[in-house]
Nucleic acid binder design. Structure first.
Length: 584
DNA sequence: TGCGGCTATTG
DNA sequence: CACAATAGCCGCAG
């Protein structure tokens, strides 16, 4: 049994000294639990209580560069709020999602998975469980119960009561991190995967830090331009509810004027819209814009309806209310960020950051003395497919700036057909013109198509998969249902796509966190991550440096992600004042 | 009040 | 019956 030192510190120098005394070096795991005025740390050899604010961690991070173990995003947000931006971490929730799949990753669940316990049997803090807690026994000051589960009141925040408790909580975090690392190493089929999956864990963890910063910093927006765009799209800002209702009625009138008054049609009700169209002789199974687009010439009401839809969408989702709710006094648009969603592991964002209509993007402007560096990965998914499948012919095609040109030549088809064929293969489309081109793909790129087919087969059978970077993709089966076959086919398409989309997300995040790590010293801020696009806010005089750095970081990330793929990744990088500005 | 369906936007 | 996501509004069940 290793003797664990109990150390204490009151400032950054003392904390650094304590860590040195515990034998901590660069890259070593140091767990940290942080709450208001409470700071507890844990290393393999020590539990450290720090009677000081969390800001001392910034200095220690700079000096010692350990890998900080944190339970979840709560710790990250608390640290960022306290001005602490760590260089690296081991994020238990992120590692849990990677190793085990699924989305939920609260401490009890993460603890159970790391310790081979069934989290369904874990105690909760409901009133009805008070008796159970009382009879569980053991020392309430010890966070782990005799039955091995975390004590629910500790999960609920009891660890915040003192530095000693926080250090004990950090000790558990360290324990989980070590077990997660063992699991990754045990699960990986070979040393190559072991190293790669650990690299993914590190990148996913850093992406969690980045998300905390994206939430805190926000996206620069010019309020005057925002106001002008909204005015052009939906009119002036209503002064009260009555004015808002009147504005809405005005907007509705542009469509309803085609009907006799008092028709009782609600434009927001698809069934009513169908009725409305039928009255003008148009019969459609649904009223989606894509379908109505073709019928614009049939009756003027169609065009008015489509224009109304566009305006109504801005008014309801991206109108003055949205602006007031999500854009702060400092002109920053803020939303919630998640470093990996439940399906394939892409980053997600709220507050419209990922689906802001193109016509509103001119409002996203660099602040005075700054510019944006906007960088897009070109054709990332087919290039990633070439890399993860190891298809030599498809890899050769990535040498071209436009991968679809050599693919089209090889298939003997038009570029547009080749593009549809590649996308159809990755998405699992079987019908239409894509089906035919797909057979050509099978012959020309058997390794890539075989990789996708294997993924689809696993999905259909309900077998879990791992992406190239090691993320577990769970397959949820619905058994006994009449649509069993449809569900299996759906899982097949999901698996096929998730293997590519997920791997692309892993590469993208490595790129993003590399940029984050390298760009800090030039005053660069990552302000948006959008699946294959990075938006960086940089001081005007560092724009050229930032462009070069972004390109270098892509090469570095691609190499770390897959050192031997031979795949060429291309980025379109430009310096712009507004997000909407043309590339190049 | 919660949830599925429909629709729109984005990559 | 082409993949992923967020988000609003409607109708309907409870």
């Amino acid at each position: 049994m290793t003797v664990v030192l109990h150390l204490s510190a009151t400032d950054a120098a003392g904390l650094a000294a304590a860590l040195r005394e515990a034998g901590t070096g660069r890259g070593d795991l140091v767990a940290v639990a942080v709450a208001d005025g409470v700071l507890g740390l844990a290393t393999k050899r020590a539990r450290i209580t720090a009677v000081t604010g969390s800001e001392v961690l910034a200095a220690v991070d700079l000096e010692m560069r350990p890998r900080w173990v944190v339970w979840d995003g709560g710790t990250v947000r608390a640290l960022v709020a306290g001005g602490v931006r760590l260089a690296t971490c081991w994020h238990l929730a992120a590692a849990h999602r990677l190793v085990h799949g699924g989305w939920r990753a609260e401490p009890q669940r993460v603890w159970c998975a790391a310790n081979g316990l069934d989290h369904h049997a874990a105690p909760t803090l409901g009133q009805l469980d008070l008796l159970a807690i009382a009879t569980t026994g053991g020392d309430p000051d010890v966070p782990v119960q005799p039955d091995g589960f975390l004590r629910p009141e500790w999960v609920d925040g009891a660890w915040r009561r003192s530095p000693e408790a926080a250090a004990a909580w950090a000790g558990l975090a360290l324990d989980v991190a070590l077990r997660q690392r063992v699991m990754i190493e045990a699960e990986a089929p070979a040393d190559m995967e072991r190293r790669r999956w650990l690299a993914t864990t590190h990148a996913e963890s850093a992406a969690e830090l980045l998300c905390g910063e994206l939430e805190a910093d926000g996206l620069p927006v010019d309020p005057a331009i925002a106001a002008r765009l909204l005015h052009d799209a939906i009119g002036p800002q209503p002064v009260d509810d009555a004015a808002a209702a009147a504005a809405r009625a005005d907007l509705d009138a542009m469509v309803l004027r085609h009907l006799p008054p008092g028709s009782g049609i609600d434009l927001r009700n698809p069934a009513d819209v169908k009725t409305l169209l039928r009255r003008t002789g148009i019969d459609v199974p649904d009223t989606r814009a894509r379908r109505l687009e073709a019928l614009r010439a049939d009756h003027p009401i169609v065009d008015d309806l489509l224009r109304w839809r566009k305006a109504d969408r801005i008014a309801s989702t991206f109108g003055y209310g949205w602006l007031a709710q999500h854009v702060g006094e400092d002109g920053r648009l803020r939303g919630e960020w998640a470093a990996s969603d439940g399906a394939a592991g892409r980053m997600t964002a709220g507050a419209g950051l990922h689906n802001l209509p193109a016509e509103l993007r001119p409002m996203v402007c660099a602040e005075p003395g700054h510019v944006f560096v906007r960088a897009d990965l070109g054709q990332i998914e087919p290039r990633v497919l070439a890399a993860v499948s190891g298809d030599a012919a498809l890899t050769a095609a990535t040498a071209d700036d436009d991968l679809y040109l050599p693919v089209a030549r090889r298939l003997g088809v038009e570029r547009a057909v080749a593009k549809v064929a590649v996308l159809a293969a990755m998405y699992g489309q079987t019908s239409g013109t894509a089906g035919q081109a797909l057979r050509g793909m099978q012959a020309a790129y058997p390794t890539a198509i075989g990789y996708l087919a294997d993924a689809a087969a696993a999905g259909e059978a309900g077998r879990p998969l791992r992406t190239f970077g090691g993320r577990r993709l769970r397959m949820y089966s619905i058994d006994g249902a009449a649509d069993h076959r449809a569900a299996a086919a759906g899982r097949g398409r999901y698996a096929r796509n998730a293997m590519v989309q997920g791997a692309a997300a892993e590469l993208f995040k490595m790129w993003a966190v590399t940029v984050r790590a390298r760009g800090g010293e030039m005053g660069m801020e990552v302000v948006l991550c959008l699946h294959d696009e990075l938006l960086l806010h940089v001081p005007l005089d560092r724009a050229d440096d930032a462009v070069a750095l972004t390109r270098d970081c892509l090469a570095e990330a691609a190499h770390r992600w897959h050192p031997t793929s031979g795949v060429r990744f291309v980025a379109d990088i430009s310096v712009v004042r507004s997000w909407a500005d043309a590339k190049g």
